[in-house]
Design a protein around this nucleic acid. Sequence first.
DNA 1: ATCGTGTCCTGCAAGC
DNA 2: TGCTTGCAGGACACGA
Length: 309
Amino acid sequence: MPELPEVEGFARYLAPRVTGLQIRAVEIHCLRTIRPLPPEPFRNSLRGAVIAGVRRRAKFLRLDLAPGSRGSAACLLAHLGMTGRLFVQSANLPLPRHTVADLDLGTERLVFEDARRFGRLHTDLSVLDPLGPEPLSDAFPAGALSTALRGSRRAVKVCLMDPGVVAGIGNIYASEALFRARIAPERSAGSLTPDECHRLRTAIRKVLMEAIRRTEPHALETVPGRESLFYHGNAPSHVEAPPFQVYDRAGKPCTACGTPIRRIVQASRSTFFCPRCQAWTEPLHAPIDLGSPPPAGSSHGHAHPHPRH
DNA sequence: ATCGTGTCCTGCAAGC
DNA sequence: TGCTTGCAGGACACGA
C-alpha cells in the first residue's frame, strides 16, 4: 500500500519524466476511478494541457497543468488507494493488465495501474480542503498535534489515521510512530500530555523521513512489464523487507525489549504495538486480551477513566 | 458534533 | 488439485 513516503517517491520519479509534456488524449478504462464526474468533461478538461510539474500533498499526487495551455483543469490529482501505481512507459508497449486510466503524452504514456481499484483521479482541488497539516512541513509545529488531539476521546492510533488531523499517515506509519514515541495505541487522544504530543510529532516526522530516504526511485522505474507490486507484502523477492519495528510483526520479539509484538484491531484496522515499551500508564484498567481483538462494543469507555478530574 | 462501522475491490494465502 | 473463506487497506457514507 503506497503511503506518504511511497507517494513522495512517485512524485520525485515522475517530475523529470512528464514535466513539459502535453496531454494529447485521456483514456479511462475503469469509470469508478474518476467518480463522480462523467468521463467526457474529465477528458476534455485535460486534453491539450501541458504538465508544469509534479508534487505531493498528503497521499495525493498532484500534476499541475500550465495555465496558458489548452484544457480547463488547473491540475490532475491522483490518489493511489491501496494498489495504485503511476508510471511512464513507451507508447508502443502494451498496457498492463490492471490499467484503470492512461494519458497519451506523445512518445510516452502515463499509466495509472490499480489492481484493487481503490485509487481515484480528480481535477477538483477541493478534495484537498479537509486535509490537516502536512506532517513534514513547517506548518506542523509542535503545538499543532496537541491542539488537534485535545478533547478527543478517540484512540490516538485512530486519530493519527484521520486525514483531517494529520495528512497522509496510514496504518503502517501510525503504528510505527506510536512505537517510536512509546505511546499505547489505545490511549484516548485527549489524554496525551504536551510532552507525549511532542514525542509523537517527532516520531511521526522521523519514521516518514526515514521511509522517504529508503524509497529507491529506480524501484519505481522498473515497473513496465512487471506484474507484481513493490509495496509492502508484494515486493519482489530480491527487495529487502522494510525495517518495520512493529507493523506486521505480531508474535515476533520487540526490537527494543524482546517482548512479543501484539496485534489488535482498531476501527477495523490492524494495530501493532509492544505491550511493554508502549505500556499503558493511565489509571488501572482491565488487562488487554492477548492476541485477539476486543469484542465489539467492549467497555472501552468504562475501562479508561477520565484523565484528570 | 463526534465517533464507530460498513462498503468498495481484487489478489493472495490458508484451510478444507 | 481446486474450491471457499478471510484478510488487507484509504476514504467516504451513514447511523447512533
